[in-house]
Design a protein around this nucleic acid. Structure first.
Lengths: 183, 183
DNA sequence: ACCTGAACACCGTTCAAGT
DNA sequence: ACCTGAACACCGTTCAAGT
């Protein structure tokens, strides 16, 4: 009758995330995950609905982590300072978790749950409203996120190949954006 | 001795791009491409180095097309008008070619050739220099590209889910950026 | 010179059989 | 209740054999 569980969903998700970060999304095979957690591939289907669902679970874990780091980085006082902190924290997170970060913005397979999504943007909307005024809250938040995401996505894809000082360009962009959004 | 060629590299690349656009990157299998061009999968290796190389060829074709459309959209007179035209053209192209557009910014597999890359950014750099001044050319160009790419990447990934008027937000962002870059 | 079937080493996933 | 080997339908890729 009873056979004891030899692994957990958490262990499976963690193993998947490590595989993705170490060797890329293609390295995430059910067999590789199974090997890491000490089980055979078919057993994973007791914990997870399949490979796509496993990728989605990783994406959600990453989204939660990113939202937490951003929350901690803000002090709620100076809007311009908070915007800079938000951008810098976001960028740092993407640099430390490049492969799984990209999951958050890949269409189809991934899919972050609505609640994770809302949590991620709550503090951003707050900063945007304080900086650009309540009537521009959503538009300003969208301008900021799209810039940050575009920037780190291009960094991760190796799309900045024309030389120049990248950190200087980052500061330039941040300065201009803060100035542009201020009411 | 001689056996006649039954397809061409061009036909193979075109078939691959159509498969990607129609059913996503996962639908790009060597067998599917072979079926479309009327040949068996092993024959494709006479035209193309393998699946990854085929994806890279598609990415380069897309990069060239995007660069051409942008070149045509600019008139070289009003910098602000050209920046708006560039952004709008870029966005329209991404909307019409969502799946293959994303290839341009996906790390690893894809990889646009250096010459395609340079061509793509030449007119952008020009607009940036005219708008923000030569000393900020590169930084301004990077701010603009990262915003545009981030914006369309988020649109394509379905990341704008908070309602509101998206076109209005796009215009708001464009206005603010033009104002922010102007010297 | 190109095309093909057969083969190889992989995938994800299902399921009956074990404990 | 979970784990497993075996099986199925797929992949990408190689290669000897055909024309």
């Amino acid at each position: 009758m009873a056979a004891p569980a030899r692994t957990t969903t958490d262990a499976v998700v963690t193993a998947a995330r490590e595989l993705i970060e170490r060797d890329g999304l293609d390295a995430l095979t059910m067999q590789a995950v199974a090997r890491v957690v000490g089980v055979r591939a078919p057993s994973l289907y007791k914990r997870v609905d399949g490979r796509d669902a496993l990728v989605a679970l990783v994406a959600n874990q990453v989204a939660e982590e990113l939202a937490s780091e951003i929350d901690e980085a803000l002090d709620g006082r100076d809007p311009a300072g908070d915007l800079r902190a938000l951008a810098t924290t976001f960028r740092g997170f993407a640099h430390r978790n490049p492969a799984s970060y990209l999951l958050l913005f890949s269409p189809g397979h991934a899919g972050v749950s609505p609640t994770s999504r809302l949590r991620s943007v709550a503090s951003l909307r707050d900063v945007a409203a304080r900086l650009a005024g309540a009537e521009h809250e959503l538009a300003a938040a969208r301008l900021v996120t799209s810039w940050i995401h575009g920037w780190v996505a291009m960094e991760l894809a190796g799309s900045f190949q024309l030389g120049g000082d990248l950190e200087e360009a980052w500061e330039y962009a941040l300065d201009r954006l803060v100035a542009a959004l201020r009411t």
